[in-house]
Simulated assay, not measured.
Amino acid sequence: MAPTVNPASSRLFEPIQVGRMKLSHRIVFPPLTRNRNDDDHTPLPFMARYYADRASTPGTLVISEATAVSHLEEGQDNTPGFVSDRQIVAWKTIIDAVHEKGSYYFQQVWGMGRASYPELMRRKGLKYRSSSAVPMEGVDAVPEEMTEEDIVETIQSFADTAKRVIAAGGDGVEVHCAHGYLLDQFLSDAVNKRTDKWGGSTENRARLVLEVIKAVVDAVGADRVALRLSPYAAFQQAEKGDIHGQYLYLIAQLKTTVPPLAYLSLVEATGDPGALIFGGKAVNQGKTLDFILEAWDNRSPVIVAGGYHPETAAWAVEKRYNKWNTLVAFGRHFLANPDLVFRIRHKIELNKYNRPTFYLAKNEIGYNDYPFSKEYLAAQQRQFPSSLSCFPEGGG
């Protein structure tokens, strides 16, 4: 691939309708787990600034970090939930801060399943569970196979959480079925060894995510619901033996059982966090998302993610995926550049991200200390003479 498209004049800056949202461009801030919540899984006050800063160009889609749909799924330290009154109040502050910038907000929601920390679950007196009693590599504990009651409660938890998000002012929810977390543990034949209606076949392995999507759509409306998938990821050993068959069945069912979703979010083979972030094996490299995009057939827009930078993102929307209504998510670069959209539009050099600070729990270092560009600050000063006080000297 030899990108030759100028990002500033590309379709990245073509407006697009996504669900109920009229986005002014196609640069998306995606879900990024960063462990800045407190020990009760509630967002800390400084998180509102982080999200608002990345919403600083009006018309941006901001998607939250993955958020537990029940206290049972708050399975790792300092990850958030959207369950308790205290959590809801904290998230409402964040949602309002994004909206005050003229941007839009989706909450990514998940269950963690066997990706939870067994010791943390033991300390809380909660069940460590998954689709089947199949342990993860490097983890001594074996999860319990979820019962029918567990599964029904999980479906309801997704629907109830979606209602809480909308009641708090969110524009929608993105259901996380990727990267080896709970719903993906059911989708994966490497993890799901069940022989009941929730496993044992392509159709049965897809049942839980389909039931979750139906329940969430019934709760808040299809145009407020999105789904994230990572067909090629090997992270947390949630691989699929028949990738095309599994995902084509899922897409076909989505098209026939629910109205058009707000969007699909798809992770490229290059976006497997096991390889991209944690130095694990890279699998399925060179494979493309074309088969899903062809099957989805522009039913609603698709966000693609996977190590993009401005030039490759422009190439993707102009050339690679020009047949489809696509947007591009930037993770690490959006973390390091709160004014990323402005920088790309004006060809301003990007800040470099600092990987060792990605997961500093409860800490603003590597989170709220990346600077806005001088050009952005000057533009703000010209447009809003009193606004510069909102940005501490040297950064946002």
Rank of each mutant, 00 (worst) to 15 (best):
D53R: 10
L289G: 00
F342H: 13
S132Y: 06
Q253K: 15
L350V: 13
H244E: 14
A97T: 04
P135S: 11
L335F: 09
A262F: 03
Q76R: 14
P7L: 03
E119M: 09
Y249C: 04
Q253P: 01
L261T: 08
H71W: 15
S9I: 10
Q17I: 14
G241I: 03
N363S: 15
A167T: 12
G200W: 10
F372G: 01
E311L: 13
E318A: 05
I277E: 07
A282D: 06
G396H: 11
Y308D: 04
L261I: 11
A190E: 14
M136F: 09
H41Y: 11
T4F: 12
Y117D: 15
F372C: 04
A282H: 08
W296H: 14
L360K: 10
T33K: 05
V267E: 00
Y50S: 05
T195D: 11
D39L: 14
A168Y: 02
T154E: 11
Y370D: 01
T312R: 12
A90F: 06
H41L: 10
E393C: 08
A378T: 13
G241A: 04
I95K: 05
E174N: 13
K101T: 02
L340A: 02
S70R: 01
L210Q: 12
V83E: 01
G113Q: 04
K281C: 06
E318H: 01
A379C: 03
D85I: 11
S116K: 00
P310Y: 08
N363H: 09
M21V: 08
A222R: 02
A378P: 03
Q246T: 15
V69K: 08
A178E: 02
F235W: 07
D184R: 07
A2P: 07
L120V: 14
K193Y: 07
D290V: 05
R54L: 05
H41E: 09
G279A: 12
R194E: 05
A68V: 06
V62S: 05
E149Y: 03
V62L: 10
W296C: 09
I166K: 14
E393W: 07
S373H: 06
A234V: 09
V134A: 11
Q383Y: 12
V5W: 05
E153H: 12
S201K: 10
Q156S: 15
V175C: 09
A178V: 07
P231Y: 00
E14A: 10
P3I: 07
P30S: 06
H309P: 00
V328L: 09
L350I: 13
P260V: 12
Q107W: 03
Q185E: 09
V212F: 04
K193V: 12
L182K: 07
D38R: 08
I166W: 06
I213V: 15
M121Y: 04
I292F: 01
R54V: 09
D85T: 14
I88Q: 10
